[in-house]
Amino acid sequence: MTFFCERKETDNEIKIILKPHSLYVMLLMLAVWLVNEMVLHIMPLTQIIMPLFIVFMVIRFFSLVKVQKEVLVAMKQGKVQTTGSKFSFSTPFTYTITK
Rank of each mutant, 00 (worst) to 15 (best):
M38F: 14
E70P: 06
I54P: 08
E37S: 10
Y24Q: 04
I14W: 00
T2M: 03
L18V: 12
T2Q: 11
P92E: 01
V73Q: 10
T46S: 15
M26V: 13
V80Y: 02
A31H: 04
I42V: 15
L18G: 01
K69N: 12
R60T: 14
Q47L: 15
I54E: 00
W33V: 02
K15F: 04
N12T: 13
F3R: 10
L28Q: 00
S88P: 06
T46I: 00
R7P: 02
D11C: 05
V25S: 02
L72F: 10
E37H: 09
L27C: 13
A31V: 13
L34M: 15
H21M: 00
I42Q: 10
I16Q: 00
I14Q: 03
V35S: 12
F93D: 00
L64P: 00
F62W: 12
P92K: 09
K15A: 04
L52A: 15
V67G: 04
S88W: 01
S88A: 11
P20C: 04
N36T: 07
F3W: 09
P51G: 11
T82N: 01
F56E: 02
M26N: 10
V71N: 06
S85C: 12
L40D: 01
Q47S: 07
V65F: 12
F61T: 13
V39E: 04
V71F: 03
M75A: 07
E13V: 03
K19M: 06
T96A: 07
E13I: 03
N36R: 07
S63L: 07
V35W: 11
Q77A: 13
K79P: 05
H41R: 12
F53S: 07
M57R: 00
R60F: 11
G78W: 02
M29K: 05
F87R: 03
L28F: 13
K15N: 10
F56Y: 15
T94M: 04
T82H: 06
S90D: 04
H21W: 08
L18F: 08
I49N: 07
V35N: 11
T46A: 14
I17N: 06
E9K: 12
T98M: 08
M1D: 12
I17V: 15
L40C: 05
I48A: 14
L23D: 03
T98S: 08
S88H: 06
M38A: 15
P92G: 01
N36L: 03
E37C: 09
L27H: 05
S88Y: 03
K15C: 06
S22F: 07
P44M: 09
I54A: 14
I42L: 14
T94A: 01
G84H: 07
Y95A: 01
T46N: 15
Q68K: 10
F4G: 10
T10R: 08
S90F: 09
F93V: 02
P51Y: 06
T46R: 13
F62Y: 15
E6D: 11
T96S: 02
M57Q: 09
V55R: 08
M43I: 14
Y24F: 14
Q68N: 13
L64T: 12
T10K: 07
S22C: 09
T10W: 09
H21D: 03
I16A: 03
F62G: 02
R7D: 01
M57F: 09
